[in-house]
Amino acid sequence: MLGRGRAGGILAAMTSSPGSASPFSRIKIRVGALVFCGDEVALIRRDRPEASHFVPPGGNVEPGEDLLAALRRELAEELDLAPSQAGEPELLWVIDQMVSRPGTTPPPRKLHLIYRLQIPPEVRDTLAAQEYDEVPGGHEIGLIQWVDHRTTANLPVFPPIGPALAALPSPFAALPDASLPAVTDDNYVWV
């Protein structure tokens, strides 16, 4: 028998169900893409009864999946964008998220890796106009909107990159630091 000491705590942590985990004890990685066509960027608008918000195309990295493979998979699923149709993805920002949210499952800590890439207008014309996100009991439709990146400062974008995106002097301006401020309960309320 392990008892109540350190080994007992480790055993309890290893055998506890996901619902009994403490907040932010799990880490997920989400890849997202700022797909630029000129000065405009593709964002997915999700309309919900309580509010609308925007997200860059992307999603969670599956266990054992390569980061760029996950990004390519998500872009194919959400925009119908093939890797050969776009420039090489470049890591732009990293955002650490520890935000409480409604529900019975403790929220994970999430690292958002935001890449940027450029496509020509002829590719943009072939991309999806809607994105279908699986949710319990069905799917949620997101609308793909092309927005001038300089106008995103006050848009409800998650992760909250709107001000940083609007401040880019050009879609491919070099940046001195890839780290954006952490998203926590002190500076964000879950929508």
Results as ranks from 00 to 15, higher is better:
R124T: 02
R124W: 00
R124L: 03
R124G: 02
R124M: 06
D125C: 09
D125N: 13
D125S: 15
L127W: 08
L127G: 05
L127A: 04
L127F: 04
L127D: 01
L127T: 07
L127Y: 05
A128K: 12
A128M: 02
A128I: 01
A128H: 09
A128W: 03
A128Y: 06
Q130P: 06
Q130V: 09
Q130N: 12
Q130W: 05
Y132D: 07
Y132V: 10
Y132I: 10
D133Y: 14
D133E: 15
E134C: 03
E134H: 12
E134Y: 09
V135L: 13
V135H: 11
P136R: 15
P136C: 13
P136W: 14
G137K: 11
G137M: 10
G137V: 07
G137E: 12
G138A: 08
H139A: 14
E140M: 13
I141G: 03
I141E: 10
L143R: 13
L143I: 11
L143S: 11
I144E: 02
I144W: 01
I144V: 15
Q145R: 15
Q145A: 09
Q145P: 08
Q145Y: 02
W146N: 02
W146V: 00
V147K: 07
V147R: 10
V147E: 10
V147M: 11
D148S: 07
H149N: 03
H149F: 11
R150G: 01
R150D: 04
T151Y: 00
T151Q: 12
T152S: 11
T152G: 05
T152F: 06
A153C: 08
A153Y: 10
A153N: 01
A153G: 06
N154Y: 12
N154K: 14
L155T: 01
L155M: 11
P156W: 07
P156T: 00
P156Q: 07
V157L: 13
P159C: 06
P159F: 07
I161S: 07
I161C: 05
I161N: 04
G162I: 03
G162Y: 08
G162A: 04
G162K: 05
P163T: 08
A166I: 04
A166N: 03
A166F: 06
A166Y: 05
A167E: 02
A167T: 00
A167R: 09
L168K: 06
L168W: 09
L168Y: 08
L168A: 08
P169D: 04
S170A: 14
